[in-house]
């Protein structure tokens, strides 16, 4: 069989470059298999993350020929070129080789108030119809590979926006909470003012890369945007709320429920890099 050249970016926070590895092609292999073969023979200390090798854990995210992908779900025979580049996810700080520091995402997860159900039925349990949970179940498929976060140009190409933008993975989470039939917290102002929903310009790259084929933009982000229109931009809806005297949570009220506020951990005490108003550090 033919040979293939894997051109892998290797380096750390002080810089790096591409290293080429030539290997035989083996039938039925995925990119991660090839990386493992390189580890076992040519470069034992080549750093990469993986766990399940089945597209279920979302650990092995990297960029293959410039496209954010799971290495374990990209079959070699789907890549047309004889030279394949693998680079670490671009959006996150580098640790080493293909491994990046994805703690950004774990900080973001702490900005969202948790699921807060209403009262259960008299027998202490809850009832939900399948039609009521279909939408949120799609979002629960997320394996937290953070490929959508990686590809999203809002933070990929504009570092400063990380201070104001939760990213598609967390819009998916917000949508799953917002559409959960039992949840009682209105997180819309939080999404608008604190988590940067408005930064997304619905260009759908997140949807293109999602290995779980979650329709992130169509089913999570746009519905969220429309829900925010209901709460903030639609004068008729505003009037309706006034008449029915419905209160809207302010961003501060909702944010007060976020884990980062309620139960802070070391992650929330990150050196806040003396962020000033302009987002300059």
């Amino acid at each position: 069989m033919t040979e293939v050249t894997m051109s892998i970016w290797r380096g750390d926070s002080s810089g790096g470059s591409f290293f080429d590895y030539n290997l035989e092609r083996v039938e039925g292999e995925v990119v991660l298999d090839v990386v493992h073969r390189i580890q076992a023979t040519l470069a034992p200390d080549l750093a990469c993350r993986w766990n399940c090798k089945a597209g279920k854990c979302g650990s092995c995210s990297a960029e293959i020929d410039g496209k954010p992908s799971l290495m374990c779900m990209t079959r070699m025979d789907t890549l047309p070129n004889d030279k394949i580049t693998i680079t670490p996810m671009k959006t996150f700080p580098i640790i080493r080789d293909l491994v990046t520091d994805v703690s950004f995402n774990y900080v973001m997860a702490r900005q969202i108030p948790p699921f807060t159900p209403g009262d259960p039925e008299p027998d202490g349990t809850y009832r939900m119809q399948q039609v009521d949970i279909d939408r949120a179940q799609e979002f629960h498929k997320c394996i937290e590979c953070f490929l959508c976060q990686d590809v999203c140009h809002v933070i990929r190409d504009h570092e400063v926006n990380k201070l104001y933008y939760a990213g598609p993975r967390f819009f998916v989470r917000l949508a799953s909470l917002d559409m959960h039939p039992l949840d009682t917290v209105d997180r819309r102002e939080l999404a608008r003012q604190h988590l940067g929903l408005g930064f997304c310009n619905i260009t759908k790259c997140c949807t293109e890369v999602c290995p779980e084929h979650i329709k992130i933009t169509d089913n999570a982000i746009i519905p969220l945007k429309e829900r925010v229109v209901d709460s903030s931009y639609d004068p008729i809806a505003w009037l309706g709320r006034k008449i029915r005297r419905k209160v809207k949570y302010t961003v501060d009220q909702v944010y007060a429920l976020a884990p980062a506020q309620v139960a802070p951990t070391a992650l929330d005490r990150l050196p806040a890099t003396a962020i000033d108003d302009e987002g300059k550090s």
Binding site: K90, P93, I94, Q111, L163, R269, S281
Partner: peptide
Amino acid sequence: GTAIPVEIGKPRGG
């Protein structure tokens, strides 16, 4: 909005 406590400006790979 207020800034979220993430570190920015760290070196990236690639």
